[in-house]
């Protein structure tokens, strides 16, 4: 079997985890919200610098506390994508402790933080917002416009390739 890596998207409900996956895998978007329960798993094979990697992407149901996520969903995760909605403060107010949880429980895993729905806020404003809260956001993406979506997955994939 070739080089496969499990990636899990984490975050509150409605931040756009499913939409990010849909944009990345199918390059589509819909305004209709369909709540995820349990987990949807998709596979995507990509090439990065002549190396191929198979991403097994776990799009799990939203939880306001990472500790409430079923532990079985997180077994064997190589990379986390922590997604927040910059227009809803509840979705990022505990991000620091959530990330701490990931780095202590899954020390070998890589992670990225993503502010989705960046189409709804001015780029300057969004950066200022997270700077002022001292929250490190790796990507300001939009599943709606497609902005930075593939960068998120490819950056994480690259880190996972470098990891072996």
């Amino acid at each position: 079997m070739n080089n496969s890596k499990k990636i899990v998207l984490i975050g509150h409900f409605g931040v756009g985890k499913s939409s990010l996956v849909r944009r990345y895998v199918q390059n589509t978007f819909t305004d209709n919200y369909m709540v995820t329960i349990g987990v949807h798993i998709v596979k995507k094979e990509i090439q990065l610098n002549q190396k191929s990697i198979t991403l097994i992407i776990w799009d799990i149901e939203g939880k306001d506390d990472i500790k409430k996520v079923r532990a079985s969903y997180l077994i064997g995760t190589s990379g986390f994508i922590y997604v927040v909605d910059p227009t809803r403060p509840q979705t990022y107010e505990h991000i620091t402790s959530e990330i701490n949880f990931i780095t202590t429980q899954y020390p070998k895993a890589k992670y990225l933080t993503v502010a989705n729905k960046s189409d709804l806020i001015e780029p300057e404003e969004i950066k200022r917002l997270f700077d002022s809260l001292q929250i490190k956001i790796d990507y300001f993406a939009s599943a709606k416009s497609g902005d930075e979506v593939s960068s998120v997955f490819e950056n994480l994939a690259q880190q996972l390739l470098d990891n072996v």
């Binding site: 409900f13 409605g14 919200y33 369909m34 709540v35 329960i37 149901e61 227009t87 809803r88």
Partner: peptide
């Protein structure tokens, strides 16, 4: 799913 849909959608729409 239907129960969660109703609950989450209300919150999101209001927002």
């Amino acid at each position: 799913q239907h129960i969660a849909q109703e609950k989450n959608e209300t919150v999101l729409n209001f927002h």
